[in-house]
Design a protein around this nucleic acid. Sequence first.
DNA 1: CGGCTTTGACCAGCGC
DNA 2: GCGCTGGTCAAAGCCG
Length: 306
Amino acid sequence: MSNEHRDLYCHTPFQEDRRGVKPLSILDSSTYNSPGQGFDPSPYMSFSECLHGSLDFNSLAKAYGLSPSSSEVFSSIEGNSKPVEARVLGWGNSTDQIPATPNSSLSFSSSEAGGDEDSGKTKKETQPSRPEDGGECSDKKDKAKKKAEQRKKEPRFAFMTKSEVDHLEDGYRWRKYGQKAVRNSSYPRNYYRCTTQKCTVKKRVERSFQDPSIVITTYEGQHNHPIPTTIRGSASAMFSHSMLTPAPLATGPRRFPAHLQGYNLVQMPAATSNKNLGAYPQNVNQVPDYGLLQDIVPSMLFRQEP
DNA sequence: CGGCTTTGACCAGCGC
DNA sequence: GCGCTGGTCAAAGCCG
């Protein structure tokens, strides 16, 4: 397959779908760059930009006529043999009070940032009361409480991705720290933590029990650091332009990706040397370019239409 | 040897 | 109070 990189842009030329959510069309950069396409880029933004800080969800929602509470962006993708859809799932019951956090990607905090998936389930960050803890127990409990409180405030957002690959490369380095069987699902949920020091971002990756081909990725927290510059493969290089951009401030128009050219210049490898990717079947024949996209945009749903 | 994954155990929140 | 479930820890093992 061609490893050409394609950036994706969102637009809203379609009618609302049956859920009342306006879909976004997402065209790849090759489409955009094709002469004579009559493609007006002005209302477009890149997927990457959406996800990595150039746009908060409020803006996204407003831009696409979503009600602030819809918490959902329903998208479709063109530019390949098969159209696909992307979906962004909001967390919490309302997004109309999303804090404008410049560095957040789709800053998508729920009302209490606790979300509804595990609302009220403020898990401990550490295990304060293990038998061997002895006298340090109370201290550790305090720490655990503090961390738990911090966790409550972490913004979270989830994406659904049509992918054969569970753990999608997104430019950051993740360390798996847990795996749990999920009720009502034969697929386990995997827990990852950003390996960068002092970065508390976590993500959960699980497969939809309804459609096992869909990977649900939930991000929690915000990276407080740029993308690692020495990560495996060249993913970071290609991400760097948009993802390192301390959005929405730095690089010009908010709605149109200033990093388009940069993206076009970068060739995306078929797969990074990432162990995780290597461990999974690279189903590039099925969704060749989406594999690329999924590397860029780890948490979009790419639902192939029948 | 460092970084990572695997995996069983532990803990807390929630519903009954 | 008890059981279930989700989230996390940490030891052991693997791998480059």
